[in-house]
Simulated assay, not measured.
Amino acid sequence: MSKHHRARSGQDRSCVYDEITDKIIAELEAGHVPWVQPWQTAAAQVSLAMPRNAATRRPYSGINVLILWNAARERRFSGHSWLTYRQAFSLGGHVRKGECGTTVVYADHFVPADEKRRAYETGEEAQAVSFLKRFTLFNADQCDGLPAEIATAAPPPRPGMIEPRVEALIRATGIDFRIGGDRAFYAPVEDYVQVPPPAAYFESINWHRTALHELGHASGHSSRLNRELGGSYSTKTYAFEEMIAELCAAFCCASLGIVPTVRHADYIGSWLEVLREDNRAILRAASQANKAADYLLGFLPEMSPAGNPVGGDQEAS
């Protein structure tokens, strides 16, 4: 790869980072938190879900979740199934004429042929080159002729499935989870989560939202995902970790059928400061949050039709 091509690729990546970050900043400045109720529209209550590819059923991750949630909210789509122009055609449908797609990104790395040759000749380790590729998606609402199971939005989970699943998840993680006191926090040195009792909350579901936020912090412990958790209050490190925990909780909530909320709205100012200084911060935060959510949800036990863990202790924690 030539120096000119590498420089141009770097400029392209920076442009993508700027576009995404500027969009998130604009949303926050306007008072919209992109990961809070992004599916709520004036026309309908969209079923809570993480965005998925309609053809492969694979979920999107990281920053693409925020991009697609925001597009669903702004354009009032009724579901979270997405696909490319070619995928719509391969499924027997088509994107309607005049529809505007949503740009998402794919990040990866590769080793150029000349770098492999250099490494072979010198005996050194080959250095990979990162790249960021854009591609365009269309919501199933923008297509005609798709199979019924794709065109129809899946119904939301039954309300009775929500709280037992969160409680079962808390137990299954094995994280020291304590109920009591008058504030919610994660203590990284002692490695435990503490959340006030459900009765202390105006709405009981907020107890579960808070629990998922604090579990998001706990996922970063050195024995788990090993994130930097040592920042003191009001520092950029602290604000960045709070952003990760907020996004992690939002991703977990959406996967469990719970509408996310902002636990600490007063952090928005510090988030804006971080985003304005680093155009890659939101991508890194979303990526780390996705890893945290995947880690936590990986403990989710199989549930019975009644909403109880199969073969597990069914008493509330």
Rank of each mutant, 00 (worst) to 15 (best):
E124M: 08
E124T: 13
A126D: 04
Q127M: 04
Q127S: 08
V129Y: 09
S130A: 12
S130P: 02
F131H: 04
F131A: 03
K133C: 09
K133F: 09
K133D: 07
T136Y: 03
T136G: 03
L137D: 06
L137K: 04
F138A: 04
N139A: 09
N139P: 02
D141C: 13
Q142R: 11
Q142S: 10
Q142P: 09
C143R: 05
D144F: 05
D144H: 10
D144V: 05
G145F: 08
G145T: 10
L146W: 09
L146I: 06
L146P: 10
L146Q: 10
L146K: 11
P147M: 07
P147I: 01
A148M: 09
A148L: 10
I150F: 02
I150T: 05
A151C: 01
T152M: 06
A153L: 00
A153H: 02
A154E: 12
P155M: 01
P157S: 07
R158S: 14
R158I: 01
I162C: 05
E163T: 14
P164R: 08
R165M: 03
V166N: 04
V166L: 05
V166K: 04
V166Q: 06
E167G: 07
E167L: 15
A168I: 02
A168M: 08
A168W: 07
L169A: 03
L169R: 06
L169Y: 02
L169S: 03
I170N: 07
R171M: 10
R171V: 13
A172Y: 01
A172H: 01
A172C: 05
T173Q: 05
I175F: 13
D176G: 06
D176S: 14
I179K: 03
I179M: 14
G180C: 06
G180A: 12
G180E: 11
R183V: 03
A184D: 05
A184N: 02
A184G: 08
A187K: 09
A187Q: 11
P188K: 09
V189G: 04
V189C: 04
E190V: 09
D191C: 11
D191L: 11
Y192F: 15
Y192H: 15
V193L: 14
Q194C: 15
Q194A: 08
Q194L: 13
V195N: 04
V195L: 06
P196K: 06
P196M: 08
P197Q: 13
P197K: 14
P197G: 14
P197T: 11
P197S: 15
P198Y: 10
P198K: 10
P198F: 09
A199Y: 02
Y201V: 02
F202P: 00
E203H: 14
E203N: 12
I205W: 09
W207E: 00
H208Q: 08
H208F: 13
R209M: 00
T210A: 05
A211R: 04
A211K: 04
A211H: 01
L212S: 02
L212I: 00
H213S: 00
E214H: 07
L215Q: 04
G216A: 12
G216L: 06
G216E: 06
G216R: 08
H217K: 03
A218D: 08
A218K: 11
S219H: 05
G220P: 10
H221M: 07
S223G: 01
S223F: 00
R224W: 13
R224Y: 13
R224A: 15
N226S: 15
N226V: 06
N226P: 04
R227G: 11
R227V: 10
R227Y: 15
E228A: 14
E228Y: 14
L229A: 13
L229F: 12
L229I: 10
